[in-house]
């Protein structure tokens, strides 16, 4: 077969060659998507990125924009508040993705071990994922209240003094993380549960015959076979968490005393409150570069783990 096609390439014109047909088909199929993206996504992104080299208040006519070259780029590097917002963002992303993955996986394992009411339980856990963020932020704002909030009332049953959830700068970021994890947990769980369900039972049977403990089965079978699911979940949630905005915007506005100031919130403030559009764009480009690097590293790490067919 290989020989035949190799022989063919010498005699057939290039447009009949398989490689050409494949390439042409691929590009033809990709064309509508790429054209659409060029108009509605790349175009606006490039138009925004051009702002990087200008000073523009995001409000006045563009003719008022002043060209500043690399001025914005160098200013970002020395901007302590911006760099500080990176620290908060990373803490947030690690807490949210870490606890989402760990708790979500644990719940999925638990739910995988029962046979009744799985659909009901799964749907119920998924419920918060669908509830609108604005309503949930309002609700959690009430639950986080110091004196009469739901959470502190429960804590008072076990004699824990009231926690200043959103007021104490040392814990505000974690309180928001708690709410976000709660809201996203069902998503993690549904995806992990689906991944677990797809692992053939025979693998576990074989391991049981070999006398492997539950712990060993988890490490030797579950986790390796769950790797693609994990990759998907982690890549997507890391990209999302590093761009966290709405819960911060609704609940704390970056406060108290900058404790929940995250990068995208600061970019938003810089653009729409400080009216420094060019500078905000530059900050966003820094964030973009960081996310890109982290994503590429994640994809590499997983590839070295033995899954070569992802990219």
């Amino acid at each position: 077969m290989a020989v035949a096609s190799a022989a063919q390439t010498h005699t057939t014109p290039f447009w009949r060659r398989r490689s050409f047909i494949q390439a042409a088909t691929g590009w033809l199929f990709a064309a509508p998507i790429l054209i659409y993206f060029t108009i509605f996504v790349f175009g606006p992104i490039l138009a925004s990125l051009a702002m990087m080299f200008f000073k523009w208040n995001g409000f006045g006519p563009l003719t008022q924009a002043e060209f500043v070259g690399l001025g914005n780029v160098t200013e970002v590097a020395g901007d302590e508040k911006f760099l500080g917002s990176f620290r908060n963002t990373f803490v947030y992303a690690i807490v949210v993705v870490g606890s989402g993955v760990i708790v979500g996986l644990m719940l999925a394992l638990v739910l995988n071990g029962v046979t009744k009411f799985v659909g009901f339980v799964r749907s119920t856990y998924y419920l918060p994922v669908m509830l609108p963020m604005t309503a949930m932020a309002l609700l959690w704002g009430l639950m986080f209240q110091v004196r009469y909030g739901f959470l502190n009332q429960i804590l008072s049953f076990v004699n824990i003094p009231p926690v200043r959830w959103l007021i104490n700068p040392d814990i505000a970021l974690y309180s928001i993380s708690l709410m976000v994890v709660w809201k996203g947990l069902g998503w993690y769980m549904v995806i992990f549960l689906a991944g677990l369900k797809a692992i053939p039972e025979e693998y576990y049977e074989a391991a049981r015959v070999d006398g492997a403990t539950g712990w060993q089965r988890f490490w030797k079978i579950t986790l390796p076979l769950l790797k693609p699911t994990l990759l998907f979940v982690i890549v997507v949630t890391v990209i999302g968490s590093l761009q966290v905005f709405s819960p911060i915007f609704i609940m704390t506005q970056g406060g108290p005393a900058n404790a929940t100031n995250v990068v995208v919130y600061w970019v938003y403030m810089t653009a729409f409150q400080f009216l420094r559009f060019g500078y905000a764009t530059t900050q966003a480009v820094y964030l973009f570069a960081v996310i890109l690097v982290i994503t590429v590293i994640q994809l590499r790490l997983f590839r070295e783990g033995g899954l070569t067919s992802y990219y």
């Binding site: 007021i167 700068p169 406060g255 108290p256 409150q273 009216l275």
Partner: peptide, 21 residues
């Protein structure tokens, strides 16, 4: 003209003072 930025700086300071930091 720099109202937004001025306000942000004042907000951080007032908050830190009121939170007894």
């Amino acid at each position: 003209l720099g109202d937004g930025e001025l306000n942000q700086a004042i907000k951080e300071t007032v908050q830190a003072v009121l939170l007894q930091q």
